[in-house]
Amino acid sequence: ARYHDEKKIIKDILKDKGFVVEVNTTFEDFVAIISSTKRSTTLDAGNIKLAFNSL
């Protein structure tokens, strides 16, 4: 259940930042955007990776 909650937070962060994940978006770029907000401090690193892979 935590993964789904965190995935929603991640999607909200991406929307707030106006960031669109494209086919050529690197995981490093994705993490940089997510990490640039205070909301990301509680996110699990594994869940961030899973969310990236699912987009």
Score class of each variant (00 low, 15 high):
50 L>H: 12
39 R>P: 02
25 T>F: 00
55 L>R: 00
54 S>W: 05
42 T>K: 13
33 I>T: 12
16 D>Q: 12
27 F>V: 02
37 T>C: 15
42 T>W: 06
39 R>L: 11
14 L>H: 03
40 S>W: 09
16 D>P: 03
46 G>C: 11
15 K>Q: 09
13 I>Q: 00
52 F>L: 11
24 N>H: 07
4 H>A: 11
19 F>I: 07
31 V>F: 09
19 F>E: 08
11 K>S: 10
1 A>T: 14
41 T>D: 13
1 A>E: 12
37 T>F: 04
24 N>Q: 07
28 E>L: 01
50 L>V: 09
5 D>S: 14
4 H>Q: 13
4 H>W: 12
2 R>F: 05
15 K>Y: 07
22 E>S: 14
47 N>D: 01
18 G>Q: 07
18 G>I: 00
36 S>P: 04
11 K>R: 08
26 T>N: 09
25 T>V: 01
39 R>E: 13
17 K>D: 00
34 I>V: 10
51 A>M: 08
48 I>N: 11
14 L>A: 03
45 A>D: 13
19 F>C: 05
49 K>V: 05
49 K>R: 14
11 K>A: 13
42 T>N: 09
5 D>C: 12
40 S>N: 05
8 K>R: 11
25 T>M: 03
13 I>P: 01
42 T>A: 10
27 F>K: 03
21 V>F: 09
46 G>A: 13
46 G>L: 09
45 A>M: 14
14 L>E: 00
42 T>R: 09
29 D>C: 02
15 K>M: 09
40 S>L: 09
3 Y>V: 04
4 H>N: 15
28 E>F: 05
3 Y>T: 01
36 S>C: 10
35 S>Y: 08
42 T>V: 06
14 L>V: 03
12 D>P: 00
30 F>M: 01
1 A>K: 15
31 V>S: 11
18 G>Y: 00
22 E>L: 03
28 E>D: 11
28 E>V: 01
40 S>T: 04
33 I>R: 00
4 H>M: 15
29 D>V: 03
31 V>H: 12
34 I>M: 08
32 A>I: 04
54 S>F: 04
37 T>V: 11
11 K>L: 15
30 F>D: 06
45 A>P: 15
4 H>E: 14
16 D>C: 04
3 Y>D: 03
1 A>P: 04
19 F>R: 06
5 D>H: 13
18 G>F: 00
47 N>I: 06
24 N>E: 11
2 R>G: 06
2 R>N: 14
54 S>L: 06
17 K>N: 07
30 F>V: 01
16 D>M: 08
8 K>A: 09
25 T>Q: 00
25 T>Y: 02
16 D>K: 10
2 R>I: 05
37 T>Y: 12
25 T>R: 03
31 V>N: 03
41 T>L: 13
26 T>D: 07
17 K>F: 06
54 S>K: 07
55 L>P: 05
37 T>Q: 09
17 K>R: 09
29 D>A: 07
16 D>T: 10
24 N>R: 04
50 L>I: 05
2 R>Y: 06
16 D>I: 05
32 A>L: 04
22 E>D: 15
4 H>T: 12
49 K>M: 08
41 T>H: 12
46 G>V: 10
47 N>T: 06
39 R>I: 12
2 R>Q: 09
45 A>C: 07
22 E>W: 00
1 A>M: 13
38 K>I: 07
45 A>T: 11
40 S>A: 12
30 F>K: 10
12 D>Y: 08
26 T>M: 04
22 E>M: 03
37 T>H: 14
1 A>Q: 09
1 A>F: 08
23 V>C: 13
11 K>P: 00
34 I>D: 03
21 V>Q: 01
50 L>T: 14
12 D>A: 11
1 A>R: 13
34 I>T: 00
47 N>G: 05
46 G>F: 07
12 D>N: 12
45 A>S: 12
18 G>S: 05
46 G>N: 10
2 R>A: 02
39 R>S: 10
35 S>W: 01
27 F>P: 08
24 N>Y: 03
43 L>G: 01
15 K>C: 05
30 F>A: 08
1 A>S: 13
40 S>C: 05
12 D>E: 15
35 S>A: 12
37 T>L: 00
17 K>C: 06
50 L>G: 04
5 D>G: 08
21 V>C: 15
38 K>L: 08
38 K>H: 10
22 E>N: 15
37 T>D: 15
34 I>C: 07
18 G>N: 14
31 V>T: 12
37 T>N: 13
33 I>K: 03
40 S>G: 15
11 K>N: 15
46 G>D: 14
2 R>W: 02
4 H>G: 08
14 L>C: 08
2 R>M: 08
41 T>G: 11
13 I>M: 05
10 I>T: 00
11 K>H: 08
23 V>I: 11
22 E>H: 11
29 D>I: 06
13 I>K: 02
25 T>H: 05
21 V>E: 07
25 T>G: 02
8 K>G: 09
32 A>T: 12
36 S>A: 08
50 L>Y: 14
9 I>G: 01
41 T>W: 02
21 V>T: 07
43 L>C: 06
48 I>H: 00
13 I>G: 00
34 I>K: 03
13 I>F: 03
50 L>K: 14
11 K>W: 08
8 K>T: 09
38 K>W: 07
19 F>A: 06
42 T>E: 14
7 K>H: 10
36 S>H: 04
18 G>H: 07
51 A>I: 14
34 I>P: 06
48 I>P: 04
11 K>F: 11
43 L>K: 01
21 V>R: 03
24 N>F: 07
14 L>T: 02
45 A>H: 11
47 N>W: 02
13 I>S: 00
5 D>N: 11
54 S>H: 09
33 I>S: 04
41 T>F: 07
33 I>P: 02
44 D>P: 00
47 N>Y: 07
19 F>D: 06
17 K>A: 08
10 I>R: 00
47 N>S: 08
47 N>P: 01
23 V>M: 14
27 F>W: 09
11 K>G: 10
30 F>P: 01
24 N>M: 01
37 T>S: 14
11 K>Y: 13
25 T>A: 03
30 F>E: 05
38 K>G: 11
29 D>Y: 04
47 N>L: 00
55 L>S: 04
25 T>W: 00
7 K>C: 14
27 F>R: 02
24 N>G: 13
23 V>W: 13
21 V>A: 05
9 I>E: 06
8 K>S: 09
16 D>S: 11
54 S>R: 08
24 N>I: 01
47 N>A: 00
41 T>P: 08
5 D>E: 14
9 I>A: 05
30 F>H: 00
35 S>H: 10
5 D>L: 14
36 S>R: 03
43 L>E: 00
31 V>W: 11
11 K>M: 15
47 N>R: 02
50 L>R: 15
24 N>K: 09
29 D>E: 13
26 T>Q: 13
21 V>L: 06
12 D>L: 02
8 K>P: 05
5 D>P: 02
31 V>Y: 10
4 H>R: 10
